[in-house]
């Protein structure tokens, strides 16, 4: 069986590309860090890959609004390529800034179905960039292929604009994958368990197929046991909570 090829998209201000690549490599994939200019100039082709990742960072400084400039670039310059990639069954993962990009490009929640974005990621209610660990509850009904077999995770967030905002009509139709919760799995707890004030405690969503998934927390920062903030109290586990996401993705992509 040939190895799964993962494209990690780089743009000016991307800064989680290396650890995201490491997570996919540990999960058995071959990874390439590809600058968006290389795709635009056709030096690299999306169709050579099974997984595309938009990693965390501050693309173009998050100027104007987080992820907006890269989102427009993706939509206007690579729209057809991305559409073809998705139609052929490729997986798309957006982490943190990648979530913001996928939403603002109109790839999530429902790829290219409408011209008008249905939801957005707005500034945190706290008004601040915050880096903290959060408990996440996985929606068992979700079609998301990345989170199969996972019930809960403990992962770090680090962002200033992570509050999911959607209109009341859109909200019930969203394929929510992850909810912020407290240590008991309850989603009633409020800040700081929900670190940004996200509507309905939404931390991650996918499209109807479950192959396009984006989340604000960083699974790539919780691959090894020593990344867990309490490992000096609780002992070291072999893998971090985030690792299964990458294993799931690579396993799914192997069948493509």
């Amino acid at each position: 069986m040939s190895k799964v090829r993962t494209l990690i998209l780089r743009a000016p201000g991307t800064n989680c590309d290396v650890e995201t690549a490491f997570a996919f490599q540990q999960a058995g994939a071959i990874t390439s860090l590809v600058h968006i200019n290389e795709l635009i100039r056709r030096e690299q082709r999306l169709s050579d890959y099974q997984i595309m990742v938009v990693p965390g960072g501050f693309t173009y400084g998050d100027d104007i609004s987080a992820g907006k400039v890269l989102a427009n670039e993706l939509r206007l310059k690579l729209g057809e390529d991305v559409e073809r990639f998705i139609d052929k069954g490729g997986l798309v993962l957006g982490i943190c800034n990648g979530f913001q990009v996928l939403v603002k490009a109109g790839i999530l929640p429902d790829p290219w179905r409408t011209n008008q974005p249905l939801l957005t990621l707005a500034a945190n209610d706290s008004g601040k960039f915050e880096c903290r660990w959060v408990h996440l509850k996985v929606n068992k009904e979700s079609p998301c292929v990345f989170t199969k077999g996972i019930e809960h995770m403990y992962l770090p967030v680090a962002h200033a604009e992570g509050k999911v905002v959607a209109s009341p009509e859109v909200l019930p139709k969203l394929n929510v994958v992850l909810y912020y919760a407290d240590e008991n799995g309850s989603s009633e707890a409020g800040y700081p368990h929900n670190p940004n004030g996200s509507i309905a405690n939404i931390a991650g969503i996918c499209d109807a197929s479950g192959r396009i998934f984006a989340l604000m927390p960083h699974p790539e920062r919780c691959i090894r046991g020593t990344q867990h903030p309490q490992w000096t109290r609780q002992g070291v586990k072999e893998y971090g909570d985030g690792f299964q996401i990458f294993l799931n993705a690579v396993k799914w992509a192997q069948s493509l």
Binding site: N15, C16, V18, E19, F22, G56, K128, F129, E130, C131, R132, W133, P156, A158, H218, E220, R221, I223, T226, Q227, P229, Q230, T232, R233
Partner: peptide
């Protein structure tokens, strides 16, 4: 401290805030 990203690059072993509730 919370307004600094101390997790980027995925390298942290001992973070600036530690203990039961970090």
């Amino acid at each position: 401290i919370r307004q600094y990203d101390h997790e980027v690059q995925g390298t942290s072993i001992l973070k600036p805030l530690v203990g039961k509730d970090s």
